[in-house]
Amino acid sequence: MKILIAFFVLFASNIFANDLSTYKALGEEVGLTKVVDDLMVNLLKDERTKRFFEKADQKRIKEKLVEQFCMELGGPCKYTGQSMSRSHKGQDIKHSHFFALVELLQQAMDKHKIPSTAQNKLLAKLAPMHKDIINK
């Protein structure tokens, strides 16, 4: 019971703490840029994700991803790219591709020593986008 209460307090403190701690833990815009640069390197190397990015405008995608991650974490940015459903439409993205990207993003964040708690907070913001990305 004590454990349950402790976890509840942990939940509550997380939900109501609408601060910039995750944005800062990821190194703000500079840190996000490094993570996204490495993510793109990983995406182009991985057989599962390569074909979605090798012919795309990689520089633009990276810029938009940094904007998006920054905005999702409450940072001082505005996402100026297309809607998620528009940018992924017709690409035949499966669950396996989506999870592959998450894994490569985790590896990029690991490389930059981003704490696991901050990593998971960013992933929690991105995960619901699966509805606009997978099988569209």
Binding site: F11, T117, N120, K121, L123, K125
Partner: peptide, 9 residues
């Protein structure tokens, strides 16, 4: 999995 809290219940 409450990812933002890193908790599974």
């Amino acid at each position: 999995i409450f990812l933002a809290q890193s908790i599974l219940a």
